[in-house]
């Protein structure tokens, strides 16, 4: 019963970005919470982050710990660059993020095993990519509140990585691993479709 509940939780975590906004949502609670909410309501960021966490944490507890430390740092640094860049959206980054979903989701679906070093590098690279995009979005949405909002986003990133990786490390039952793989396959499929969309529309939708 507990297992199924966890599965549902994980599914909810993946499906949660339902009400999406391209722009910074006003939580009514100031920029910190706005930033945290921004992550939760931006489907590409959240799905990407959850997929990254699925991938890293399924490599074991050590990889999970590295993920939890590396991702928020990478996200913050790249996010700071994104906030200060004059970009409004990047075709290349959008493609990279969709590609990330395919790569990481596919690895989860195939249950590929790798070392925790590779997982940490993945966390740095893909956490950085997602963070950069997120920083650009934050700036586009609200030029004043970007720093605090970025910190809010990173706090949410930390919470998501901690929760998802702990969930995966704690529950190793077969059925839960199947749920994980199905979610990985869904993430990869979402990434493939998004790729088609972004490339097909010639980058007009990037960002």
């Amino acid at each position: 019963m507990r297992r199924s509940a966890t599965g549902v939780l994980l599914a909810v975590a993946l499906c949660a970005p339902t009400p999406s906004h391209a722009h910074l949502v006003n939580s009514g609670l100031g920029p910190f919470y706005d930033g945290a909410l921004h992550l939760m309501l931006t489907p590409m960021d959240l799905v990407g982050l959850v997929t990254l966490s699925l991938f890293a944490a399924s490599q074991g507890a050590e990889a999970g710990r590295l993920l939890v430390i590396v991702t928020p740092i990478a996200w913050f640094l790249a996010g700071a660059i994104g906030v200060h860049s004059q970009m409004t959206g990047s075709f290349a980054i959008a493609i990279a993020n969709a590609g990330t979903l395919v790569l990481l989701g596919g690895s989860v679906a195939l249950e590929l095993k790798t070392s925790s070093t590779v997982a940490a590098v993945a966390a740095a690279v893909f956490g950085g990519l997602l963070g950069f995009q997120s920083g650009v979005e934050l700036r586009a949405a609200d030029a004043d509140a970007d720093w605090v909002a970025l910190i809010g986003t990173v706090a949410a990133v930390l919470a998501v990585t901690v929760l998802v990786s702990a969930l995966i490390i704690s529950y190793t039952a077969f059925s839960f691993r199947v749920v994980q793989r199905v979610l990985g396959s869904w993430a990869a499929a979402t990434g493939l479709l998004s790729l088609g969309w972004i490339v097909g529309s010639g980058g007009n939708l990037a960002g």
Binding site: T190, W197, L205
Partner: peptide, 16 residues
Amino acid sequence: LSPRADAVLYSLGFVV
């Protein structure tokens, strides 16, 4: 499918 802004969400809904 025609181009739309919420591509990721649409894809996600489709897959789910």
